[in-house]
Amino acid sequence: MPSHPDSSVGYDTDLIVIGGGPAGCAAARMAASVGMRSVVIEPDRLCRNLYRISALNNALGGYTSGLELADAMTAELKAMELCRLELGRRVTELRAADDRVTVTLDDGRRLVAPYAVVATGVGPLQPGDVPWIVAPEGLFLPPLWQAAADDAEGRTLLVLGGDRPIGTFLRAHPATETRLLVVYPEADVYKVEEVRDDPRVTLLPVEHLTLRPGHRTTVAAEAMSADGTRRNLSADAAYLSIGNVPTAPPGDLLRGSDGYCPPTDQHPRVIVAGDLRSVRYQRIMTALGSGAEAALQAYYAARKLHMRE
């Protein structure tokens, strides 16, 4: 078992965990189970995105909402003696060397450990990030999974993109009277299959979508189909479901052409976990598993180094 932080080599803890979502929390929990101390750095609250997921259908333990699972995970981490929480703090730089990882926080402090788990996840793409949407400069819209029942009841919502959160939203609010105008590029038709038969959904495959300034309480847009047909759209509000972009901290992380951070490409002392790894495995269950595996990877590596020394 690795020793506790050793001031003689300048370590502040056994493991630094960057990100307090499901993967980061699982990493800290697994680290504690094998006697490793950890510091979890999270700019918001633990499991902040999980709290906004109204319905779960792929989590063990009988949890049916993100709030229930997030509450359980947060309570467990806060009660762990081997885990120190740095909430409300951002990582401004991550540096990896032969014998350590150094993390700089936004308040100027530096933390040093033998290994770091990076589990910062992803954030929503905005209209200006995709080529098929023309939008006013600087426009930022919320993702659909942040919408509550009151945001949708009796209203028409323009949903940009056909990604999986649409199905999650509909399952979470089965009795909500709403109309979703789902606008998506024709190449993404496979993404909307699970919501195609819901009577609250109108599917609009497009070549381009132009968002126009509307009234203070409405959204206006012009959709152009592949055959050149144009259609004016009006809605009470607009939400995003066009995918995510990685939110990795600056420093010694290697990114692929898609912006994600493949685990096998990283420095041996930097372990990537959760949604930051790839767009293919963005699920709560895979995030939990990869976070736990990342902590074990650090544990076994540290033990091997200690035995060799």
Rank of each mutant, 00 (worst) to 15 (best):
R90K: 11
G128V: 01
Y281A: 11
A70W: 06
A237N: 08
L233F: 00
L211I: 05
R89W: 07
T64V: 13
E68Q: 15
R45S: 10
P142D: 12
T102L: 08
D107M: 06
R90A: 10
R231G: 08
T178Q: 06
E309S: 14
L160G: 01
V183M: 01
D98H: 09
A116K: 04
T178N: 02
S7N: 14
P262D: 12
M80G: 10
G88H: 09
V117R: 00
V40S: 10
T74L: 04
G61V: 03
A187I: 12
R84S: 12
G214L: 07
V40W: 09
R212Q: 11
L69E: 09
A31G: 15
V279Y: 13
R308L: 14
T218H: 12
V192G: 00
R109D: 12
I16N: 03
G88Y: 10
G228R: 07
Y115C: 02
R216G: 06
Y63Q: 07
G24I: 02
G61R: 04
A96C: 01
D198R: 05
G21D: 10
G214F: 06
V201M: 14
R45P: 02
A27P: 02
A238H: 00
P213Y: 15
A238C: 15
T120L: 00
F140C: 08
L82K: 08
R45T: 13
A72D: 11
A59T: 13
